[in-house]
Amino acid sequence: MVQPKYKRVVLKLSGEALAGQLGYGIDSQTMASVAEQVKQVHELGVEVAIVVGGGNIWRGIAGSAKGIDRATADYMGMLATVMNSLALQDALEQIDVPTRVQTSITMQQVAEPYIRRRAIRHLEKGRVVIFAAGTGNPYFSTDTTAALRAAEIEADVILMAKNKVDGVYSADPFKHTDAVKYDELTYLDVLNQNLGVMDSTASSLCMDNNLPLIVFSITENGNIKRAVMGEKIGTIVRGSVS
């Protein structure tokens, strides 16, 4: 039997991915599909941690642009990620996947506080761990959260699931018909070409910690498993091109 290429992964889900075709809020069918894909990987014995965004409910930058204090707007965005995390936890537990939600902002009535050693222990015991509330600090994105948590728990790879594109392109493929999809990139390429895969803080953190990143589409069922098994899907970003 073919073994997974990666033993411990961090799955980064944007809030928009959970909205599905609705464009806003949480689409139950999309949530169920994501949960089922996570279950496929979990059943392989892979340790799965998940970082969820909140853009389907609230974006801190957008709120700030409308006059709300930036720090306040970002904290509101962190609360949106908690809502998404609890919804994902419920979807996973409905299909018998043991799950824990850990938040960077203490709210002990609904989730555990983020404690690195406890998170690792949950993973070792076969539980999916969902990291909510970002880093707990304003001015940092959930991309940076994914990079930070992946480094902290010593993950093998970050899986960045997208709902609109199936990899990294030289330009927006919806606006430029001549946009080229990359199979492999370095973090320096991402930073120098301003490709928008993740923000510069997250990219630098991944590069400094030699964390590979796979960008792929979440809309095709089974893609998370394909990425974990090492199949060539999407775009892989690493410290240097092999």
Rank of each mutant, 00 (worst) to 15 (best):
Q89R: 15
V165S: 07
W58R: 11
V241I: 15
D183K: 14
T99Q: 08
A171H: 13
L18V: 07
G239C: 03
Y182V: 01
G167T: 08
P173K: 05
Y187M: 02
M78L: 12
L44N: 07
A111H: 09
E93W: 08
L79S: 06
V157R: 10
A146Q: 03
M207D: 06
S204R: 14
L148F: 11
K181C: 04
L79T: 05
F174A: 11
L148C: 01
D96V: 03
H42A: 04
S242H: 13
R226W: 02
V168C: 01
M31G: 00
D172L: 09
V129Y: 08
A32D: 14
I50L: 12
G136T: 03
A73D: 11
M107H: 12
D199M: 08
A17D: 00
M78E: 10
G67L: 06
G25R: 07
G53A: 04
V165K: 05
I224E: 06
S28W: 03
P212E: 05
F140P: 01
V228T: 09
A146S: 13
K175G: 10
I120Y: 12
N84C: 06
G222N: 05
Y169S: 04
T72N: 02
L92M: 13
E220T: 13
V101R: 09
R8V: 01
G20I: 07
Q94I: 00
M31P: 02
K39C: 05
R118L: 10
V52A: 14
R238Q: 14
V97E: 11
L213K: 03
G55H: 06
V41H: 11
Q29F: 11
L18S: 03
Q109L: 07
E124V: 03
K5A: 13
T235V: 08
M107F: 12
V215G: 04
N223L: 03
M1L: 11
A227D: 02
G230Q: 10
A111P: 09
M78W: 12
K125Q: 13
V2C: 07
A179Q: 10
R100N: 09
V101M: 08
V34K: 02
N194C: 05
I158A: 01
V180F: 10
L44V: 02
N209W: 09
K7W: 02
T99A: 08
L195Y: 10
G239H: 10
L191K: 09
D183Q: 14
L159I: 11
E124W: 01
G55S: 10
V9A: 05
D189L: 05
Q94E: 13
H176I: 06
